[in-house]
Design a protein around this nucleic acid. Structure first.
Lengths: 336, 336
DNA sequence: ACCGGACGTCGAAGCGCTTCGACGATGGAA
DNA sequence: TTCCATCGTCGAAGCGCTTCGACGTCCGGT
């Protein structure tokens, strides 16, 4: 193994000069720097990660905790992970992969051994048991998703409220006057995450603002549940022409149910959804939807972390990404 | 930060004794060990990863290179990654995530800086440019997939030949006498990977062994291509009752085409496939299939790597996992 | 002409851990 | 009883890097 002293000798300088030439933490003359760089190339020098970490107390590694729970859309997680890795590399950092299974002990381990400099935690629950730990940890972290009490934590997520609004605004723009939100299963509104409620808020606010008649319907994540909701809507809201779906599992069966009940999409009924793009695009009738911007979330999370590590002042505690609606074939102007 | 000297002082021993108590590399009396462990718990000691890596030249981190190319099934990659992480943890190792994008330079970086002790490389191509590097690297590696020349490399993969055989044997067992293999797109047989050819070999061998009439049909990965192959099969092989599909993209359109042409699956035609489970199980007619055992592959890869690191003698260069066929609804006995 | 500061470099002191050699104590073999 | 091997522990020497303080040199300001 070629080490810094070898480079120093080869370039005719001291090891510290090589180090400074590499880090730029002190001025080095162009001439010297060039000579050092030539030596580095010639000898194929690579600084030893462990030694560097020990001396500088910086490992240049981030931890990424990925969820394992069923129900989350795998391609989205993957997209996110890739985006984090790519972004981290731009800042000369690597990414250590942890599974949620490791729990708090895992966080402790990588943080306390100084294996990583910082952490990104995905799939944060409303009352996540890891929160106190993340607050107490001496290393910075960024969460994906918003827990109930986010004070003192840096969080990134899609702005679900705005997403709800956006779906409604789109339907309003197409002339729809009566809309319904088909939401997550009832239990989700209680436990898990706050995002479900945020969607409801946005949906309702936008409907009110536009003087639309609106209603909200939690929906079980099963075909039968979707069918039930579809029937109920037809019965109770005969004037309904616009639906917003925030329930991945129910989206397809819901559309099927509507069509079986005699409503064509988008001719009779316009549908928008908040769900992964692949899901929306892959249906028989591709659905106009607001996607979860996994790549952008990953990038933001990594960048926030780098800023925290850099000590560039404070970073915002909450980052909400603006939703973007992708027009597909499930929406149409309301028939006069 | 609490360090080993703190623990040593607290326990009334020397730092080296603490180290030996932890590593077990020298005998330590029960009494002393207990005292040390109590001190560790009480002080909350965690050895510094960098220091440990520097002193022992072992980082206890594996690199995992995941593919980004489109066309590979994301959930399978994810399953694989999780499995590697889980297995690595059993051996007290962590996993650093690299994307294929980093290429050879990335491998060099993590290996030469001693950031990782060993590497797992997924999605290996037939003539992968990284092979010479992996051979030359001072750190052990395991490949997922078989390149053209695998000498000197440790490779793990599904036994695609046996998978082809298994599909045919199943059809033979159901009484089918005339079978066809609908394979990968023509270009795949040239470039990319050897697995396509292995499936053909297995398919043909098993058909011959069972005295079946058989034919092989490369197939473009498009609905139109699938349709074309279906039509051709009906025309040229009127007695055909069994099909093996080794082409993810063509599976669904192929079945659709058959049914549109008047063949019911499985009544008139039995179909087996080699493809990810989710795909096979998610179709209108769930398809009897041989799955890619991602979890087991990940576990095997990690375990092989640990053995190589442990220096427990030699490990086999090639590990082929036995295929397992999952019975679904696309196969039935041949009608008399 | 003189002084202060920036520039460019060096030497040395660690960072926290592992590991090697050494050494007394113990115990079984001769 | 003597000797040697083993056990259990210690001290010291690094592992390869960063960083701090120091020191000459050069330059511009006064």
């Amino acid at each position: 193994m070629v080490k810094i002293t070898d480079v120093a000798r080869h370039a005719g300088v001291s090891p510290s000069t090589v180090s400074y030439a590499l880090s730029g933490k002190r001025p080095i003359s162009d001439e010297t720097r060039r000579r050092i760089q030539a030596s580095i190339r010639e000898l194929g020098y690579r600084p030893h990660a462990g030694a560097r970490a020990l001396a500088s107390s910086r490992s240049n590694v981030l931890a990424l905790v990925i969820p394992l729970r069923t129900g989350i859309h795998v391609p989205v997680v993957m997209q996110f992970a890739v985006s984090v890795v790519t972004t981290a590399r731009r800042y000369d950092h690597d990414v250590l992969l942890l599974t949620q299974e490791e729990g708090e002990e895992g966080l402790h381990r990588v943080a306390d051994t100084a294996l990583v400099d910082a952490l990104i935690v995905m799939d944060v629950q409303l009352h996540d048991p890891r929160l106190p730990l993340l607050r107490a940890l001496e290393r910075p972290s960024v969460l994906i998703g918003f827990p109930a009490a986010a004070e003192g934590l840096t969080c990134v997520d899609l702005d679900f409220r705005a997403a709800g609004e956006l779906c409604v605004e789109r339907l309003a723009g197409l002339g729809h006057r009566v809309v319904a939100l088909v939401g997550s299963p009832p239990e989700v509104y209680v436990r898990e995450t706050a995002f479900a409620q945020r969607v409801v808020q946005g949906f309702t606010a936008a409907a009110d603002r536009n003087g639309m008649a609106s209603s909200v319907h939690p929906c079980a994540a099963t075909p039968a549940g979707a069918r039930r909701v579809a029937e109920q809507l037809l019965r109770e809201q005969p004037a309904l022409t616009g639906v917003v779906v925030h329930n991945e599992a129910a989206l397809k069966p819901l559309i099927d149910a509507f069509e079986q009940l005699g409503l064509r999409v988008p001719t009779d009924l316009s549908v928008t959804a908040i769900c992964p793009d692949e899901l929306a695009a892959g249906l028989r009738v591709p659905v106009t939807s607001v996607a979860l911007p996994a790549t952008e979330l990953g990038e933001r999370a990594a960048e926030l972390l780098m800023r925290k590590l850099g000590g560039d002042g404070e970073v915002p505690e909450a980052t909400l990404l603006a939703p973007r609606l992708i027009e597909r074939e499930s929406t149409a102007p309301r028939l006069a």
